[in-house]
Amino acid sequence: MDLLLNPVAAIGRAVLGACRTVGAVALFALEGVSHLLRPPFYGRLFLRHLAEIAYFSLPVVALTAVFTGMVLALQSYTGFARFNAEGAVANVVVLSITRELGPVLAGLMVAGRIGAAFAAEIGTMRVTDQIDALTTLSTNPMKYLVAPRLLAGVVALPFLVVVADILGVMGGWLIGTTKLGFGSAGYLKATFDFLEVMDVVSGLVKAAVFGFVITLMGCWCGYQSKGGAQGVGAATTTAVVSASILILALDYVLTEMFFAR
């Protein structure tokens, strides 16, 4: 109703609200990172979150990567066959996977798994006074809950993307050699001949950024949740949706930075 009666004021309020939220998230992130530089450090928690993100996300990331590589090989073969360029299938698969699809798909999968899990866990701790309890137990909640998760996200995502890169290429190789008539050695040679270190490195940098964003949004949304079960549910949804959108937006920004020249 307000939007109809006074659209400028409504838009202004929305923009101001968005600016406030961006500022608050940035300060939250800075505080989380600052705790990584000051003792005490929670190595045990870092390892637990690292296992939670890297090890337990392996199956879903691996399956996504394999099927994406397989589909990519089939689709690019279909397209390139129209220009008699079937030989480029291996190049397209490896470049698409390492530069783009590996980090983005792994990021989206982990956002669904870990962003939701972190938001739900921290959100539940918020609404059941466990975060206040940490403060009364001489423990800074940002240091205990947020900092180890942020670091684990930054470390785990590149590892998952290396696995996704390898399995994505192998998915393409599987279809190339069993269905599209490529020789195994020829396919792999074509894969590695045109692959540059920067292709892989840029994907890994993207992965580290996505890992930070996923864990940051999970922690932030959980930390801000209120109002019981409904609040925790809303925080979980917001964490996944915001992390997914940020991954896609930052993917464009990072791609511009790496490949614009």
């Binding site: 701790m125 059941t128 006074d129 466990q130 206040d132 009364t136 001489s138």
Partner: peptide, 20 residues
């Protein structure tokens, strides 16, 4: 304040025990 918090204990209404 941290030094003061070290000297304080608190029993929360619902316990607020850490599930993990």
């Amino acid at each position: 304040r941290e030094a003061l918090a070290d000297r304080i204990g608190m029993l929360f209404q619902n316990g607020a025990l850490f599930d993990s």
